[in-house]
């Protein structure tokens, strides 16, 4: 238990699309200053949960609390200054350039008459710098590699300067080196005191970078806690149906999952 109250809480929430309920009576706390990773099989509701936290979806029962207050009681720009989301898939306007897209992250701070304060320019410059995009700032987003483009979206989120960052599968489409590069970047955000919630598919990476794991299956949270306690061979078998052993990572000592050879497993 952390000393600070959790920044983001979802209480007893039923979340779904139209008639279809995905998660029922789900409760979860995101500890203040944590790097929380949400893991679980495809289609178990990770994105759905993230979208409910980001108030893209409204729970039909229960509620979401942001800094102790129901999220529905905030103005929408006020929420946008505290919490940002990198969706699983994003759309860029045709023919937009890197710096322009990153600058879109400033919109919660802008008004009709104040569209480009020096604080906006500063935030965009810093976000470009942190994601090593300064050199590419004038390029067309369409003409970047998948990895560079993903950094642009992260930069846009960074320019939003929110204390809470929600990221849905930020490492997909990246090669292994760029995956780690992005995770290291997220770690620097975490070190600066931001609260991160990321959906990750690689359990080893989740255990290595996150300090709080949330494990989901079929729309409910199976367990949550520090990776060293949560990741066990039984859990992986139960949640993913994958027979494996869990061994310490030779570099960091955090748990890693090593699948068993199905041909040598006793039927």
């Amino acid at each position: 238990m952390t000393a600070h109250p959790p920044r983001l809480v979802i209480e007893d929430a039923t979340i779904g699309y139209d008639q279809r309920t995905i998660a029922e009576r789900l409760s979860l706390e995101i500890p203040d200053g944590s790097f929380t990773a949400i893991i679980g099989p495809n289609g178990c509701g990770k994105s759905t949960l993230l979208r409910a936290l980001a108030r893209v979806l409204t729970p039909s029962t229960g509620r979401v609390l942001l800094d102790g207050k129901a999220i529905t009681q905030y103005g929408s720009k006020e929420v946008a200054r505290r919490m940002g989301l990198l969706p699983q898939t994003s759309l860029a306007p045709d023919g937009i350039r890197v710096a322009d897209l990153v600058a879109r992250g400033r919109s919660p701070y802008q008004s009709l008459f104040q569209q480009w304060r020096s604080s906006d320019e500063q935030a965009v410059a810093e976000a470009l710098e942190a994601t090593r995009l300064t050199e590419l700032s004038g390029r067309l987003v369409d003409e970047l590699s998948g990895g560079q483009r993903q950094r642009v979206w992260v930069a846009m989120l960074l320019a939003q300067q929110t204390g809470i960052m929600l990221l849905d599968e930020p490492t997909t489409f990246l090669d292994i080196a760029h995956q780690y590069e992005l995770l290291e970047l997220l770690r620097t955000f975490h070190d600066e005191g931001k609260t991160l919630v990321a959906v990750l598919h690689d359990l080893d990476q989740a255990a290595r970078y996150a300090d709080h794991l949330v494990v989901m299956r079929d729309g409910s949270v199976v367990t949550s806690g520090p990776p060293a306690e949560v990741v066990t061979a039984e859990l992986v078998q139960e949640v993913f149906g994958l027979p494996c052993i869990v061994a310490p990572d030779p570099v960091t000592g955090t748990p890693t999952v090593v699948p068993l050879d199905p041909r040598s497993v006793v039927r």
Partner: peptide
Amino acid sequence: GDDAAITQG
């Protein structure tokens, strides 16, 4: 997109 638009207010 709608998700990004909502989270930007």
